[in-house]
Design a protein around this nucleic acid. Sequence first.
DNA 1: CTGCGGTGATAAACTGGTTAACGCTCGGCG
DNA 2: CGCCGAGCGTTAACCAGTTTATCACCGCAG
Lengths: 373, 373
Amino acid sequence: MTKRSLAAEESPDHANGSGHRKRRQPAHSHKVTIGDIARHAGVSKTAVSFAFNRPGRLSAETTRHILNVARELGYTPNPVARSLNTRRTHALGVIVPQDIPTVLSNPFFAELMSGIGEVCKVEGMSLVIVPPMRGSLEEATYAALVDGCVVTGLSAEDKAVRALRMRRIPFVMLDADAPDDIASVQVDDYRGAYLAMKHVLDLGHRRIAIATFEPFTGRVEDYTGTLRHRFSGYRAALAEVGMSLCSPRIHIIECSCDVAGGKRAFQLLTTLRPQPTAVVALSDVIAFGLIEAAHCAGVCVPEDLSVVGFDDIEASHLLRPALTTVRQPTREKGRRAAEMFIQMLRAEEPAQPQHVMLPVELIVRESSARAAR
Amino acid sequence: MTKRSLAAEESPDHANGSGHRKRRQPAHSHKVTIGDIARHAGVSKTAVSFAFNRPGRLSAETTRHILNVARELGYTPNPVARSLNTRRTHALGVIVPQDIPTVLSNPFFAELMSGIGEVCKVEGMSLVIVPPMRGSLEEATYAALVDGCVVTGLSAEDKAVRALRMRRIPFVMLDADAPDDIASVQVDDYRGAYLAMKHVLDLGHRRIAIATFEPFTGRVEDYTGTLRHRFSGYRAALAEVGMSLCSPRIHIIECSCDVAGGKRAFQLLTTLRPQPTAVVALSDVIAFGLIEAAHCAGVCVPEDLSVVGFDDIEASHLLRPALTTVRQPTREKGRRAAEMFIQMLRAEEPAQPQHVMLPVELIVRESSARAAR
DNA sequence: CTGCGGTGATAAACTGGTTAACGCTCGGCG
DNA sequence: CGCCGAGCGTTAACCAGTTTATCACCGCAG
C-alpha cells in the first residue's frame, strides 16, 4: 500500500492522459465501476472483487479499506456483469401464456406461484413472471434473465418450449403431457372432472352445464393438456349413466376465467333449454361468478341450481354457500415443480427427468344439492 | 462471401491450432456462442450480432445465411451478455419486505402486482418479485437483475431504499412517506381509517376492537407509513366522540395478515372484557377470518358483531355477508407507480419526482350494522 | 487516372465484472 | 542456509455479447 499504491494510482492517470477520452456518458450519470474503486483504493480490480466476494482472501485491513472506498463512492457490483461470469441469475422464471394482470388476477395462479415461491424462499432466489412479449412467448424466453423456469399452460409442441429445449435451459412443465425427456408435474385432471360430474349425477341431476374457460372450438377432441383430461373425465362419468357430452341435456358454456366470466356464463345459462339444474365449472372463480349472478337474479344455490367448482382456492370455503369443488394441491404442485427445477439446476449430469402426478379430491360443501323433483 | 469467407474460416482455426485450448467445460455442456456461429458461417461476430439486431445492416443473403447457421446449431444470444451491453434488462422489480409465498398468498398484493403488471404488459417487460435474500432486502437489491423497481412496505430510511438511492437506480415508493426527491404513490390511509372508525361509531358502537397486522409495539407513536396514518385516522374519529385509542373500551389486536390471523383475532376477541361489538380490521383478509370464525362460533355478523375491512379486494363483495370495507384503488396504485417508474426510466435528465395520493372510499355492505340496544 | 461516396463487412474496443495462475515476501523447519 | 508453504496481492484471460471506427470494394463523376 505504499509504492504500489502510487504506481497503481499513476498508471490509470497516465492512460487517461495519453489520449482517448471516449466516455460517451456525461459525467453526471457515470456509474462507478470496479475499476474506479480499484484506482481510488490503489489496488487491482481483483482485490476489489475479492473484498466483496471472498472475505478472508485479502488481509482484513485491505478489505476494510476497499469497502470504505466503495462506500464513499457509492459503488456496488453490477449484478448483470456478475451474472455473466457466474452464469447464475438467482432467479426462477415462470412462463405464463397470458399477460401479467390476467395471471395475477386469478387467485389460482397466485396460489400456484406462491407454491413456487416457497422454493425461491429456501433457495434465496427471486421469481420472474415471464409473459408473452409483443405477442410472442418464444421471444420472451429469449430475453428472460433467469436460471431456468417453470412452464405453465403450454404443450410440449409450443414454440417457446421448443426454444427452451434447444437452448438446454432447465425447465419443468406444469399441467401438460410432457414427453419422457421433459420433467413435468400435473394433477389428476381426469379424475377431478370425473368426480365433479359423478357428484352432480349422483345427486340426480341430468340437465347439466359445463362452464369452461378456453375458446371452445366446438371439437372437444382438439383440446390438449388439462382441458383434454378434464373433458375425458366428464365423458367417463356421463357414460356411466348412458349420457355423453353431445347429449341434448348437456351444455357447454365458454367464458373467460374470472368472476365476470362466471356471471356471463350464468346469463347464457338462463337462456338454455332445457334449463340446467347443475353447473360444473372448470374453475372456482367462474363458480363464484355463477353463484353471485344467481344470487342477484334471485336463483337459489343450491336449491334451484347446484354449482361445482374446480381448484379449491382459499376463498372457496369462505363463500356462502361454501363451494363444492375439486381440490387440487395447487401450492404443492408449484412447489414440486420448482423443487424439480432446482434439482436439475444442481445436477452435474443431466439426469432422467421425473414425472409427477398429484391426486385431487372432491370437497362437498354447500353449493350442491339433490336435484329437485 | 468468397475469398473472405475462406480467410475468416481459417483465422480461428489457426488461432485454435496455435496453442491454448483452455476450455474448462466438458464438450457436452458447451453452450454455443456468437463466436461459434461466426466461425461456422464464415463471418465475424459483428455480422452475427447485426443479423440478429440490425436487419438491413447486412445484405439480405448474409443475414439469411447467418440465421440459418444459428438455427442449425441451436444458437440464441445470451440475454445476460446482451443486457450487460445495452444496460437494459426489460424487467421491473417489485421489492417486497416479506417472502414470496406470504406476499402472493395475500390477494391484496396480488391485485397490486396485477396493476403493476398492466404497465409491464404495455412496456413488454417481465415482473420480478424481489424478496429478502438471506434475511436482507438490501442484499437482494444488489443481486436483482432489473431496470429499476417499485418498493413496497418500506420506509425511506430503510437500508434497501438507501442502497437503491445510492446506486441511482430508478425506483418509486409505494405506501410510504417519501422525501421530496423520491417519487411515491400512496393512498389516503388516514381518511380510510377515519371513515371506517366513524362508520362503526355512527352505528352506535362504542366497544371496538382494531385488528392490526404488524407487530404492535405497544406504542402507536412508533408506527411509520401506512400504519401510522391509519391509526391517526382512528384516533381522529374516536376523538370526535370523546374517545381515544387508550380508552378501556378500545382494544388493539395484533395478528398475521391472512385469514388464519383473522380467525386467531376472533379467538382473542372473545376473551376481551368488555366484549367488543365491532371490529375494524386493517385488511380484508383479516376480516374474512373474523367472519369465518364468528360463523363457526355461532356469532352472527352483523347482528352480534360488526366487521369492517380495509382494501376491498375482489372477494369482499362475494362473501355473505358481503364485507363493509374501505376501498382503495389497489390496481390503480400499482399501475400509477409503475407508470412513474417508466417515466423515470425514459427521462434523460432526472426530473422532479412526483408524489401521488389516491383517494379511498367507504363501501357499506352487509357486515356492519347498528349496535344492539 | 484520380477522387469520392455508398455498401457490406470487419477488427478491436468496450460493457463490468470473476477467476486461474502466478509472484513476492516471510516464517518455520530440516 | 536452503526449501517449502502460507498469506496476500497482481496480471491477464475470460464471460458473451454490442458498438465504434475503419476498410475494401465498386461504380461513377471530374
